[in-house]
């Protein structure tokens, strides 16, 4: 099933990927080609087949919930593109009214 340009715009917003001129056609064409190959999965009847999410049987192992060493505030902010007063700085999250 080929992807429409509307669908590309919708998915790009969900993925938080900006679109530049030419991107819509690029994704629509390339993703449609890949999806054509993927559509062969529909040939298989999988009604009675359970899905596999985890291939290796590993019991859920939780360590003891004991406080340990963690990053200092300085270490946590060391890679921050912008930091102010010990916080990460971001553009406005709430729209101005």
């Amino acid at each position: 099933m080929p992807l429409s340009r509307d669908q590309v715009r919708h998915v790009a917003l969900l993925a938080r990927l900006g679109l530049e001129p030419g991107d819509e056609d690029f994704y629509a064409e390339q993703l449609s080609g890949i999806l054509r190959h993927i559509d062969r999965l529909q040939e298989l009847n999988t009604d009675a087949i359970p899905p596999t999410a985890q291939v290796v049987e590993v019991a859920a192992t939780l360590r003891e919930d004991e406080p340990g060493q963690c990053l200092t505030q300085e270490e946590a902010l060391a890679n921050a593109p912008a930091a102010v007063d010990g916080f990460f700085r971001v553009p406005s999250i709430q729209e101005e009214t």
Binding site: V8, V11, A15, L17, T46, T52
Partner: peptide
């Protein structure tokens, strides 16, 4: 990377999950 993020987001998006992601997980079992 952008191509795969788009593809993955599409496969997980509302209305397509069963047809793509769940189907692929079942084929993984096979």
């Amino acid at each position: 990377v952008r191509r795969r993020v788009m593809l993955g987001t599409y496969a997980l998006s509302s209305g397509y999950y069963d047809a793509y992601y769940l189907k692929a997980q079942k084929v993984r079992t096979l």
